[in-house]
Design a protein around this nucleic acid. Structure first.
Lengths: 330, 330
DNA sequence: TTGTATGCGTTATCAT
DNA sequence: ATGATAACGCATACAA
């Protein structure tokens, strides 16, 4: 492997000069610069990132933590981040936490050892108190997730409004018995609290009170959706519509409903969240809340790079708008 | 950041001894070992991977190149690789080439500079002649892709058989006019050549000759599928069944067909490839060829680790079986 | 404008 | 069983 010494030897210059060329320092004669560049090409020279990291603090690598890459929401998110990063000459180191606190901590340590310059977290498993100490080693930006009681830079979606307009849409369609799935616990201050609030606000504005039987907690997957629908079918007092937490849950609900001969939206109206590609593939096509995933990825990376470049700068929190996409399931 | 020196200082031992503890060397007294381990914990010490990489050749990082992470086939593949790697104390550095030869080369350079110990390529953009030189820096394993004229270790699926059993299934159902989508060009020795061969063999065994009008090349996405169906609908002599190259293309075909009132499988039978989650979400549920993605990811990582551990060892090529999953679209 | 020398954190070699 | 030291490849402070 060609090193900086090889280039120095070949050109007859010192390692320092070669290094200066690599790093675009001023005060280098044009001839030597050209000389070095030719030599680098000839030798197929490529700077060794490990040495650079060890020496300076430059890595131009961004770490991204996702809970699960097979979740399309996150694979699209990572994809958009990667595109923007690449354009800015940054690399993305993707890591899936598997919703495991140890894996998450393991990855945060890469910040400590400067394998990554900064980290974008799209989910949070550990308590913030355990994560906060890592911010001294580099910026951490929250994307999609957020914490009300901390002041980390955050890029997120207006989840409250997303849910609100979804429920509003169902109300406008005449529904009064509206079920609701959440990925969390329907607690005041827990996961998905914003969405919960949107649900509650919309209902209370319509003068409808929440029926606890129609609240389904901890739902995420297609199978969860199927189970939800099974439960609904066994109820005496059934909801006429259901707001699911994701297109995947909605897919499960639809599949199960159709398997039992229910008509959608006549027997039950269904609304998703995300507007993933499957939303259009389902039959009936899924009414859902579109999240600007690409934009969120872009803003996150741009924000982190800003933080990286201006060590003392700050990035204002960004809240992206969501949108109702009406199709045939409502 | 705590370094090995800090640990040495705190314990009153030398850096060398600390290093030995870290690397599980023999000949260390139990007491000192315990002493060091306590100190490491106390200081929150974590070895610096850059320094290790620079010094030795140990990184325990595997690089994986995928064309596009948003393609579920690849996100599931990467996921299974990551799981196995983590169990073996390896990290996965995922990179998407975007089917761009420069990005691919860029990533291969990480092998040269030892950022990764070895690389698993799930797609190949450059000519092998341009990739081959990198094998001197570390093992490269091909997963899913393969090259007939090279001897890189390869883990792949029996694509020929996959296509063969799919076509055979359609023939058994009485179809004689069977369309076919390929991701490549239907060339003798190009991309997807194995699948093409499976298609041709099955047809010729049934005494049916290939109708070039029913061959659709370069198809990958849902939209491609929609276009394929549009074309079919305009034909005078229409196929009664179509073998698509992926569940996504199949989804596009189904959507377009239903949008125009065609019944499936009565008006046209459709068969996918992959058995992705969407296969079961489509209506009608999709008959498809199941690929053992998880197994492929596992075998790849295990194979690469074997290569990594035994520098001179070799890994035999692995060909995994595929399976026909009959649902309602045929 | 260019060169010399030092250290980043680690591990292998050679002593002890 | 443990310690001192050199070297990995690079970037910077200091000298020239």
């Amino acid at each position: 492997m060609a090193t900086i010494s090889d280039v120095a030897k070949l050109t007859g210059l010192s390692k320092a000069t070669v290094s200066r060329v690599i790093n675009n320092h001023p005060y280098i004669s044009k001839e030597k610069r050209a000389l070095v560049q030719d030599a680098m090409k000839e030798l197929g020279y490529f700077p060794n990132p490990s040495a650079r990291r060890l020496r300076g603090h430059i890595t131009s690598t961004i770490g991204v933590i996702v809970p699960r890459i097979v979740n399309p929401f996150f694979s699209y998110l990572v994809n958009s981040m990667e595109q923007v990063a690449y354009k800015n000459n940054y690399q993305v180191l993707m890591f899936q936490s598997d919703e495991n606190i140890d894996k998450e901590l393991y990855f945060l340590n890469l910040l400590k050892t400067r394998q990554v310059d900064g980290i974008i977290m799209t989910s949070i498993e550990n308590d913030w108190d355990n994560i906060e100490p890592y911010t001294q080693y580099g910026p951490i930006l929250l994307c999609n997730e957020y914490l009300s009681h901390s002041n980390v830079p955050t890029v997120r979606l207006d989840q409250t409004k997303g849910t609100y307009i979804g429920i509003k849409h169902l109300l406008d369609k005449g529904h009064k018995k509206i079920g609701y799935c959440t990925g969390g616990l329907f607690a005041e201050d827990g996961k998905d609290k914003d969405r919960n609030q949107g649900y509650q606000t919309a209902l209370s504005e319509a003068g409808i009170s929440v029926n606890p039987n129609w609240i389904f907690i901890n739902k995420h997957t297609i199978d969860d959706g199927k189970r939800v629908m099974s439960q609904i079918m066994e109820m005496d007092d059934k909801p006429t519509a259901i707001f699911t937490g994701s297109d995947e849950i909605a897919a499960g609900v639809i599949i199960e409903a159709k398997d039992h001969g229910w008509r959608i939206p006549e027997d039950i109206a269904i609304i998703g969240f995300d507007d993933q590609p499957i939303a259009e593939m389902l039959d009936p096509k899924l009414t859902t809340i579109r999240q600007p995933i690409n934009q969120m990825g872009e803003k996150s990376v741009e924000g982190l790079i800003t933080l990286l470049k201006d060590k003392n700068g700050s990035v204002e929190n960004i809240e992206l708008p969501v949108e109702l996409v009406v199709r045939d399931s409502t």
